[in-house]
Design a protein around this nucleic acid. Structure first.
Lengths: 119, 119
DNA sequence: AGGGCTCGTTCACCGCTCGTTCACAACCGT
DNA sequence: ACGGTTGTGAACGAGCGGTGAACGAGCCCT
């Protein structure tokens, strides 16, 4: 993997990531991630703003060739999204580019549900 | 295709295009394009200012011979125009040259709608 | 050792996007 | 006005990506 990039700290909106420590803070609170989730997040954040192909992500995080038909990346992007969305509902971080890959970029999510008041 | 021209960056007015990443920024914001749309845009921009025939565009983007009666190019030019116009209403990028093909060139569009006030 | 976790992987299902084609309207040059 | 060219909306099938669930391997605890 690539986490061995010493102990810099990455910031992205309300997120703070410490690759060296395997630690993610969301708005100051620790966000528990599994090894794969963490690796994927770091890989994406290190390439913020750019589109990263599944194949590249797999190489970076899984350290091997993406076999075709393998959906691991999709599944883990989903898991990451759920956790990030739970921690920071007002932000969208991981964006899909159909046919290309995923792009990390903190953007305000278009949420204006009053749904929490179902009458 | 030709996108494999490494990681140069193309600029055209408010547009920034990264052929290597499959990414287009319109006034700084990511503009999501399909694979075909993206390929077509890159091909046109790489030939900015010149008229490009449908046949040449097809060869560049679809990597095969344009069969006659095939309207794919027209359809995709339209899709591209819609997306570009939505993102940057003040600019016209793709110009038709009847009988010859299309020409890419960022030009101010003549827009002066007050339409948003339908009374 | 056994039971209850979490984790990573895989599968199945399904909605949605993409690329292609068609039909018709609008437009162009002559 | 005419024939050819281009614009545009819609329909279609194929494939991509989102998502819930099942499964087995490793862990920790007692």
């Amino acid at each position: 993997m690539e986490a061995a990039q010493t102990d810099d700290v990455l910031y992205a909106g309300e997120l703070e990531i410490r690759p060296g420590d395997g630690l993610v803070l969301a708005a100051g609170r620790a966000l528990p991630l599994s090894v794969r989730e963490f690796g994927l997040l770091v890989a994406l954040v290190r390439r913020s703003g750019r589109i990263v192909s599944r194949s590249e992500l797999y190489t970076l995080v899984w350290a091997s060739e993406l076999r075709d038909g393998d959906r691991s990346i999709d599944v883990y992007v989903h898991k990451l999204r759920v956790k990030l969305e739970t921690a920071l509902p007002a932000w969208a971080f991981i964006h899909t580019h159909v046919g290309f890959g995923y792009r990390f970029s903190p953007e305000a999510s278009h949420v204006f549900h009053n749904s929490t008041t179902p009458r």
